[in-house]
Each structure stands twice: as C-alpha cells, then as structure tokens.
C-alpha cells in the first residue's frame, strides 16, 4: 500500500510540471493586452511602458515562468493586477466556499446514487429498479443550473425553507451553513448521483451473478453479510473509478451553480479574473484547482488499491 502511494506521488511531479507550463503559457497567449485594460483608452505611451515595467512584463517569458514557478513553490502566486491583493489570499478566501459546496454535493451524490443503485440491483426488474433507472436518466439529462432555479423557486421562494441566495461560512454558524449549502449542493449533485446510481447498479448486477456470491450463500451466510461484505466491496471497484472524475466534474459544475445562487466562491473569482485579464489571478486559480483535482485522484487511487488487490503493485 505504501509503495502504491509512493509510486503515485512520484508520478505527480512531471504532471504538475506540465500543468504549470501550460497554465503559464496559455495565459500569456490570451488575446488582448492587460496593460491596455489597466491604463484605459486615454493612456499614453509612457504610462504604458511604466505599467508594463511595474507588472514585470518586460522580462522574457521563459525567465518570467521560472520566477513565477519559484515563488509558486513557496506558496506565493503573485499579486492581482487590479487590486494588489495577493492571489493566494484571494483564492484561499474563496476556496472553502467552493470546497464545501463540492464536498456536500459529492456526499449527496454518493449517498443517493449508492442507495438507488443498491436498491435497484437487489430488486431487478421491480418497480424500484424502474423508478431508479428512470430517475437516473432524468437526472443526467437535466442541466444543474436549471434544476437549481427550480429548487430555488420551490423550496426558497414558495416554501421559504432555505435561503434563495448567499452563503454562510461553516465557522460562522453550522446550521446556517447547512441551510445555505443544501439547495446548491442538491442542484450540483443531481447528475452525479444519477451517474453513480447507474454505475452501482450495473456493477452490483455483475457481481451478483458471480459464483462466489452463490458460494457465499451456499455456505449459509446471512443476506446482509453477502450483500455488504461480498457484493458491495467488489461492486465498489468500478464505482470508485467513476467517483474520481465525478468529483472533478462537480468542482467544475460548482463554478456555474455558484452563479445561480449568487455564492462568492472560486467561480465568480475566476469569471471576473478572466474578464479583466488578471493573469496572475487566472494562473493561481487554475493551479490551485489542478492541485485539488490531483489530490482527489490520488485519494481515489488509494481507495481503489484498497478495494482491488489486483491493482496493488506486487
């Protein structure tokens, strides 16, 4: 197991290097000039040169990259072109919002998806199975922002159970946090729970047909022991693989759902940074997001190795 972790960590180094090069060069290739945006239409040539000098854009791109990389490795992602706020501070301020939204929706997706998938697989061709399959198709077809608007209209505007917009940090009030995060997390988690339900169902149906399930039943094991110990552990192997990129999708989806619910997360920060061509901010957001995605994949790889002995290096 330690070997698996070690192998994966070493494999991360080239990956992160490539990502950093791409992030840096893509932002440099953006059309338009941030300096023009800063000095505005009335700016003179001297002002232009001055701002360029101040932003460090006169230095050749390769040495700019290594300067940026060196500082990024120490946790300094530079300062915003527009309000002189350190990028790290701005990202870290918004990150908990997006993370809690993503985490809660992942939790909802896993719980709903697993429950529906297990129930459907254990009762094949029953009404439960049909309902779950229909629900999964619907869930994958409905766009999350539209479902979010429906949720707001029903639960926030009509029933007034939840706030329609905004976000309360967990540290301020756990109860208010839960109230503010429930609707966006539901909207976001819908399609992932559908994808997970489908995966759980088909994986479990496959495992249930295996002879070791027949053997376990023949040995006189209780139904619960058979389902949870023999079926589920093996059925979870493909599910974990799906989960890894479902969480990545959730992270991307969070940026959209945040807009529907007017939540100041990483999404709105990213959108304004792109609009203003705030290059250090864009680079910082992308780099941090990549780190999170890589961490998620590392964790799911670990769970995968734990569940599947064949995936462990021998």
């Amino acid at each position: 197991m330690l070997r698996l972790i070690g192998q994966r960590l070493i494999a991360l180094i080239p990956l992160l290097f490539i990502v950093s090069v791409l992030t840096f060069s893509f932002t440099a290739l953006l059309p338009g000039d941030p300096v023009d945006l800063i000095i505005g239409d009335e700016g003179t040539a001297e002002q232009y040169e001055m701002v360029r000098e101040r932003l460090g854009m006169n230095v050749p791109i390769v040495s700019r990259y290594f300067q940026w990389l060196g500082r990024a490795a120490q946790g300094d992602l530079g300062t915003s072109f527009f309000n002189s706020v350190p990028v790290m501070d701005a990202v870290m301020q918004r990150l908990p919002v997006t993370i809690s939204l993503t985490a809660v929706s992942a939790l909802i997706a896993v719980i709903v998806g697993m429950a529906a998938g297990i129930a459907a697989a254990l009762n094949p061709r029953s009404w439960i199975d049909r309902l779950a399959t229909f629900g999964a198709t619907l869930g994958q077809a409905i766009p999350n922002f539209w479902f979010g608007i429906l949720l707001v209209a029903f639960f926030a505007v009509s029933l007034r159970w939840f706030p329609a917009t905004g976000f309360t940090p967990l540290s301020t009030s756990p109860w208010e946090w839960l109230r503010s995060v429930t609707l966006p997390a539901l909207a976001l988690g819908l399609s992932s729970s559908a994808a997970i339900a489908r995966q759980v169902r088909s994986a479990m149906v496959g495992v249930l047909q295996q002879d070791y399930i027949r053997a376990a039943r023949a040995q006189g094991l209780s139904r619960r022991r058979v389902v949870f110990k023999h079926v589920l552990k093996n059925a979870l192997i493909p599910v974990v693989a799906v989960l890894s990129f479902q969480i990545t999708i959730l992270l991307g989806g969070a940026l959209i759902v945040e807009q529907v619910f007017a939540i100041n997360g990483l999404g709105s920060l990213a959108i304004s940074a792109v609009r203003q061509q705030d290059i250090p901010m864009i680079q910082g957001i992308v780099l941090v997001s990549v780190f999170i995605v890589v961490a998620i994949q590392l964790t799911t790889d670990m769970i995968y190795g734990f569940l599947n002995p064949k995936a462990r290096p021998s």
């Binding site: 070791y212 053997a215 093996n234 569940l307 002995p309």
Partner: peptide, 10 residues
Amino acid sequence: QDPFSSLNPS
C-alpha cells in the same frame, strides 16, 4: 464449477 468466479477476488 468455475474457480475463477467462485472465489471472492477481494
């Protein structure tokens, strides 16, 4: 019959 399917792989 099939020992490749009758033993739990995990």
